[in-house]
Design a protein around this nucleic acid. Structure first.
Lengths: 200, 200, 200, 200
DNA sequence: AATGAATGAGTTTTCATTCAT
DNA sequence: GATGAATGAAAACTCATTCAT
């Protein structure tokens, strides 16, 4: 390892430190109430240093959002591997949804309470991953229909509302209630009900 | 009408003017990005005048929220009148949900994007109407089970996640997408799917 | 009594009501922290009504100050009646000082904590009574010297500092300590010491 | 001197610049009428910069007051050095009181502020230096009594009223009158009178 | 690359005063 | 004369961003 390489590594580390600090604080306080100074202190860097790695506050926030989505997507792909049936994938998706958010409540807060409802994010074309995130479910449902496992009399988008809506609602309540009760028992029942509703 | 009556009306009018201006701007920009000066200008009053009618920014915001919920609740009751069956009420509820939010998109934005997901609001006991809003559905579902119209093998709370989750998700997407497409055709299909899922 | 007379009386009463309310609140909170609305509410009138009787906040405050001084002066004159010796008058003055402030702590707070330390008041020539208030002591001391009862080797102004300074300091402490202890026993001792210091 | 040292000095200088500007303006206009913007402009910094060095307006003000008291106390100690007799220390104290205020009129105006501050903070335990300031005189007087130089028939607190009251009164008048007359000739005479009154 | 002091526009809120009724 | 709603200037304080070191 040469000097440059080592420096790069140190930089990467610093970027991650800032990233993690920002993620933690944003999930605690929300975007508007998180200040750059808070992030800087939590990351143990100077405020100016944040601007070495991120354009500005919005960029930092958007990077977190993209990363957040990427992580979900990446892990999901791993969990999908080996499963061929679209229907089974949907089952898996539901399970994974609860599993992922429960595993890392920090992430789920950012996703559910911050990103998902950001109007400018939702309408922006600059961040294609946001548009992307919903399309996959549509593809899965369509494939499930073609397999003959999912009812064909219902619009795909309607089913997506039912699917994602139920999941998000359940998780959001759990977050807002302070994560005090056990999510696991719920998740299974919700899974059953959703599957029951969309299957042939 | 006497002089006093007229004065009262003028006052009420001004309060409503501020109220409507605040509602409009908050729904456009969100709570944090709405300034008192913007509201004042939009309502064509001085900033100080807002403080004649509302304690502070939070109070103004909360008053809007309470009003919002109250209106939904009040209108819903009217629509429920004459309906005896709990199951039919649920049908009606779903229809009304779309109808109400579509009728007044300004209201729906505040409810769906601002109030519903505000952590401190959700956990606050100072605003009982927020807690109240979810309990009614539970009662309806329970009554539907007792009538024998709704399946008894599923937890009430799980069904509520499905019901409210689907509705909220559908409406939220519609809002975030800029209300560009027609909601009515969706609403009916979603209704069908939800009813289908929870009925015996 | 005619109508005009009765109206005048009602007005006088209203003015006094405002006056008393202002005095009470100013003594509690100080000049800067007293608002016109607080006074209006305490006097049970509208804010605009205060401006019917007083030019503005400063005028109201100054009127209180003048009244305050006038009351002290007026009562003092009564207590002086029958006393011929200047030396005895000084004795009386000291006693009266404690007596007056103790009798009406509201008055003393305004005088000691508000008026006395107000720079613009002290330097103003618009309020001759303020200048006047100190001159009387000088006259008394001078007369005492001429009577041969008060030492002549000390500058009159120096003696006034000792006299008024001691009194004000003692009363101020009493006020600041919450008027919890008995002032009477002190006042006598302080009297003795001051008299002792200035007498021949 | 290294770079760090120089930086520290620059910071200190800026803090002092703000401090001095605040002191000057507060002494001119009083606490309530001094705005943070005025201080910022006078110190040639941005308003935000003040908040880098002081918590808020009250903290800035309290720091000035504490500094003021500390300075008095510190210098007094130096002047006390070499003097053994408590009685002589009291003589010195009186002299120093006038000397200190005359030497730096800017400081002395702040003292008026301190007096006023004392009024509002007299009952507060958060600023121990305020309570402290009066106790020292009691100790000195007591020691003077034990030396046999100060009369024992008078309560210590009564003597303190005479001593501090006279000094404060003389200085306050001088300050409020705009420091137009010569204080030195007075101070000596007041000294003589006070000493005369309390000595055996 | 890293720092963090400095910036100052922007925000909420207050309150003496006015004036139409 | 009395009212009190309306005013809006002014204040304290915040914080994303910059830039000299």
């Amino acid at each position: 390892m040469n000097k440059d390489n080592k420096l790069l590594t140190q930089q990467e580390e610093k970027k991650i430190k800032i990233f993690e600090a920002a993620r933690r604080i944003v999930s605690e306080k929300g975007y508007e109430k998180t200040t750059m100074l808070q992030i800087a202190k939590a990351a143990d860097v100077a405020t100016g240093t944040i601007y070495e790695y991120f354009e500005n506050k919005e960029d930092l926030f958007l990077t977190i959002a993209a990363e957040q989505y990427g992580l979900f997507d990446e892990e999901l792909k791993i969990h999908f591997s080996g499963i061929k049936s679209a229907f089974e994938k949907i089952r898996k998706y539901i399970w994974f949804y609860f599993y992922f958010f429960q595993k890392d409540p920090l992430y789920s807060e950012i996703w559910l309470l911050v990103i998902r409802l950001n109007k400018s994010l939702a309408q922006s074309t600059a961040y294609p991953w946001i548009q992307q995130s919903g399309k996959e479910i549509i593809d899965l449902l369509k494939a499930g229909q073609e397999e003959g496992m999912i009812r064909k009399d219902i619009d795909l988008y309607v089913m997506r509302h039912l699917l994602l809506g139920s999941l998000e609602h359940a998780m959001t309540r759990w977050l807002l209630k302070g994560k005090t009760y056990d999510m696991l028992s719920y998740s299974e029942k919700i899974s059953d009900l959703i599957i029951d509703a969309i299957k042939k």
